[in-house]
Amino acid sequence: MIDVRGVSKSYGSVQALNDIQFQIDEGSCFGLVGPNGAGKSTFMKILVGVLQKFDGDIQVFNKSVKQNRQAVKSFIGYVPQDICLEELLTAKDNLMYFGRLYGLSGEHLRKRIRTVLDQIGLSDKANQKITEFSGGMKRRLNIGCAILHEPSLVVLDEPTVGIDPQSRHSIFALIQQLKEMGSTVIYSSHYMEEVEQICNSVGFIDKGKLVEHGTMKHVLHKHRSASIFVSADGIGKEELSLYGDTIEKKTGFTVNCDDPLLTMGKMIEQFRQSGINPERLELSQARLEDIFFYLTGTQLRDNG
């Protein structure tokens, strides 16, 4: 288990993290989401032992980050937001380099390099220099360098920034593999749909504070409310307001109500009787991004 106990961090007068507390179960995939500058990277840097001065503590599999920093580092694989590779070296040499930094050597290291190259889909590019790689290939190798030593905890800080859909898909598949192998994954992103897709627990961070956390199911259930989207000729806000709180949107109306399924049935009946043929009549669920906006008043993409 990862147990975050009252972690606070200041940079001068700026409070980057303010009394962060939560737990992550072993083997789970935890999504840490928040806008840029919310404190995600600061938290990651503390967790992986790069930032050493902070208040509170983090227990990683029963070892304190403060007291057993070197030991904790050995079972964490950190994928930073920036691509940290030696540009003048080949993919294989980069893996060799990071493998040695994690204490691997000899045949075991060579075997791990072959396995990881296969996992990240770069076996045929092993001897190519990084300068010849696309952004997506570099991102995959960036992850490869962090999983060589088979870490129990993989920390990924915005691993899909600026890459094509194919590479993104490949990274998701890799994370899925890690989950299946029993690794605990912490995934930081401001792409909410990614987090919703791959994580089974989530924490919202904004202005250094953890505003909500829990299993994905719990958070979605707690804050998700359904609504009905209607777009039709011959019907306006006044008529729809009979069914619930109605908000006019660009292409139609959103009707918020307590029992959307029942309400939708009533609407369909009324439309049939009135001869109205709606272009769109949809039941829509609030997404993670909507929940974050509701909780913090911060629009992620505006900052991303």
Binding site: G49, K73, C84, F98
Partner: peptide, 14 residues
């Protein structure tokens, strides 16, 4: 500036 220092600092290398 490339983040390599932080990346290496995250490994067990003293």
């Amino acid at each position: 500036d490339s983040g390599m220092v932080a990346r290496v600092a995250s490994t067990p290398l003293p």
